[in-house]
Design a protein around this nucleic acid. Structure first.
Lengths: 149, 149
DNA sequence: CCGATTGAGTTGTATATACAACACACTGAA
DNA sequence: TTCAGTGTGTTGTATATACAACTCAATCGG
């Protein structure tokens, strides 16, 4: 006899998109953490360093918008990265906002970790499947682009 | 003139799957956090409560395997949930392992938050798109199933 | 010129997460 | 029987994350 009853808890456990998103984030992140650990940088920090480098000399609020990161979260991540000497503040014209730039040490680190990152990227692609990876990519792009207005 | 040079940082910023996974996790989670906040429970806790309820009387290691959560992470989440009175420990036969069960208060909470969860689920589905949501679901299932051996 | 508003960033606090090291209890082999 | 190994959970420490409240500077309306 097949049971037809599905409890609320079962529905939530089996269908919750937040649960899936978090699970995937944990699983994928752990691949990159393992790969980057020998270089002394974390996955989140690598993402920020790459974003700052790619954006040129962004304000921290630009980075926050791009990555959908809370400004306070970013603030503390930046502290650690500045302590490490990977990023520096460029005092801007406006007394309110600051500009961020990657230091030469930060730029060198990006190049140094790139092979490990690439390896992690391949492992993650395998874990997610080609379709899963492509979808993640596409959805992520859309969410980032949300910061346009 | 179109630039043909792509820096390492740009590649990482644009392609990193961990960055995407984390971004999506943050974006989706925030929808659920907003929905659940009035009920005093977080997204992570809701997931654990649903998992414990759905699994029956699991050991915490079972929950950890199912959700791909580090045992120490789970341990502290459980502390908070037991403090709230949503979960309780069932002393098992074996002195090492304990069993978890949802209390009646926990069960009531699941039912109470279900409508808010459902609303968040709809919003998330809209944000991700039907295809994105389906892929997240599928990939998440596969990762969970990884705990089978 | 002044006060209200707004935008940027920091700080206090709490939760989520993981790794390393530990404590404990069972299990199994010598 | 004893002791090494293994599985289970906790604790120390660090990072990641977010919300609320704050400071500070610029701007804008009057």
């Amino acid at each position: 006899m097949t049971s037809k009853t599905t409890t609320t808890a079962q529905r939530i456990a089996c269908e919750c998109l937040a649960g899936r998103a978090r699970l995937i984030s944990r699983a994928v992140s752990s691949i990159y953490e393992d790969a980057l650990r020998p270089h002394g940088i974390t996955t989140a920090q690598m993402g920020i360093l790459a974003a700052v480098t790619a954006l040129g000399q962004p304000r921290s609020s630009d980075v926050a918008k791009t990555l959908c990161l809370e400004k306070s979260t970013l603030s503390r991540n930046l502290d650690r990265m500045i302590d490490h000497g990977w990023l520096a503040i460029v005092s801007g014209d406006d007394g309110r906002s600051q500009r961020l730039r990657a230091t030469s040490k930060g730029a060198r680190l990006v190049e140094k970790v790139a092979p490990a990152w690439q390896t992690a990227q391949r492992k993650a692609r395998t874990l997610l499947g080609e379709k899963g990876a492509a979808t993640l990519q596409r959805v992520g792009d859309k969410l980032m682009a949300g910061g346009s207005p």
